[in-house]
């Protein structure tokens, strides 16, 4: 290296004009205000979804006792040969619960996918 020769070429650069955006997960990890906003929006979405499903449950299954209390005549109603109360509580309620659960899982996973897309590396 002691011999004289052409000096090594040096590339002179300035600070990058365009920053490559970092993944927004770092905002969440660092608990910045921006990260807090991302988290808050996910939490609100999921909670709103959960409360929605539970409200539907309360307004359907949950109202049955009150309905039978206020309209006693309902218990004499038969559909085919099955009393209405038996049909609703013994049979119909189970597919209904499953349908509610299925709708919830679909929406909850979509919320998470949206969130993952939002916070993952924007360059991708």
């Amino acid at each position: 290296m002691s011999q004289a020769g052409p000096p090594e070429r040096v590339r002179v650069t300035g600070p990058p004009r365009r920053r490559t955006p970092a993944a927004r997960t770092t905002d969440i990890d660092a608990e910045t205000r921006l990260g807090g906003m991302y988290m808050g929006s996910l939490l609100r979405e999921q909670l709103r979804l959960a409360i929605g499903v539970l409200t539907v449950l309360a307004l359907t299954v949950g109202l049955l006792p009150l309905l039978f209390h206020l309209v006693p005549r309902l218990s004499t109603v038969h559909i085919l040969w099955l009393p209405l109360g038996w049909l609703l509580l013994g049979v119909a309620v189970y597919p209904w619960l499953l349908a509610l659960g299925w709708a919830y899982v679909r929406r909850a996973e979509r919320n998470e996918d949206d969130f993952a897309e939002l916070v993952s590396d924007v360059e991708k």
């Binding site: 959960a50 499903v53 449950l57 299954v61 509580l89 309620v93 619960l97 659960g101 899982v105």
Partner: peptide, 14 residues
Amino acid sequence: PVGWTAGYLVLLVL
């Protein structure tokens, strides 16, 4: 039985 099943729906969503 309805409550024992619906309990899982509540557990699922919350």
